[in-house]
Amino acid sequence: MTAVRAILFVPELALVLAMPPMLMSVIAKTKAWFGGRVGPPWLQPYYDLHKLIQKHAVYSKTTTWVFRAGPIVSLAALLTAATLIPVLSNESLMGFSGDVILLAYLLALGRMFTVLAAMDTGSSFEGMGASREVTFGAMSEPALFLAFVVMAVATKSLQLSEMIGPGLLLEWRIAGPAMILVAGALFVVLLTETCRVPVDDPATHLELTMIHEVMVLDHSGPEFAFITYGIALKFTLLGSILIHAAIPHSQEIGLFGSTLRIAELGVLAVLVGVVESATARLRLNRIPMFLAGATVLSAIAVVLVLMRRTG
C-alpha cells in the first residue's frame, strides 16, 4: 500500500521540487513590475543554479567540516520536511501523529547548521548575521507553534497533513475570525523564515544590514546553489502550510485542486512581491515587535478557539 502511494507521489514530488525557483522568479518579476522594469527572464533562477552547480567550491583555510556540512544538512533537513508537508494535494508522502514537532525542529536543524557554518568562518560579519538569525528565529517559533495549537485543537489531530486538511473547513465556518488571525501570523512567520522584507532584505548589498545573506557570504559553487535552492524550497513549504490553512480544499476536488494550489502559490509569491515593493524593511530594533505581534495574533486565536470549545 505504502509502496503504491510512494510511486503515485513521484510526479507530484517532482513538481514540488521543480517549482521553488519559479516562485522566486514570480517575486522578482512582481518587484520589477513595481519598479517599472522588465526584470530578469522567467527561468533566471534555474540558469543561476545550473551555473553554480558547474563551478567548484572554494574553502577558506580557517574552516572545518562544519562549514562544508552546513548547506548539505540544511538542504537535507528541508527535503525531509518536504515529505511531511502536503503541497499540491491534501496528503503528504509521510506523516504520523506528532509530526508537526519534527517539522518545526527540522526547520530549526537547518537553521542551526547554517548558523554554525557561518560562525565557523570566523568572520565577524557572519557572526553578527548568525546572532540576528537566531534571535529572530527564536521569536518567530512561538507564533508558529501557537498557530499549530489552533489547528490541532480545531481538527483534533497532531498530524500536519490532517491539521491543515479539509477538517479546517468547518473551523472557518464557526471560528472564522480566529482562522484569519492564524493566517496573518503564518504570513509573518513565512516572511521571517524565508528572509523577506520587512524582516530581512534579500537584495541588500550592505553586510551590516543583512541577516541571511551575510551568513552565506563564504559559500560558493554547488554549496551556494544548495543554499539558494534551499531558501526557495523553504518558501514553497511554509507557503503551502499557510495556503492550506487559509484555503482548505475539500477532499473530492482532485486534480483540479492541485492546479489550484499551484495558482495559489503563485498568488502568494505575488503578494510577497507586493509587500516587498510597498514596504521598507523595519529598523532592526522594531523587528522583535513585529514578531511579538505575530505571536500575539496566534495567542488570541488560541484563546478564541478554546473559548468555542468550552463555551
Binding site: M289, V296, A299, I300
Partner: peptide
Amino acid sequence: GFTASVLLGALIIVASF
C-alpha cells in the same frame, strides 16, 4: 517599552477572556 506594552496588552486580552 513598546514590545513589553504589546505583550502586556495581549496578556490583558487573554486575562479578560
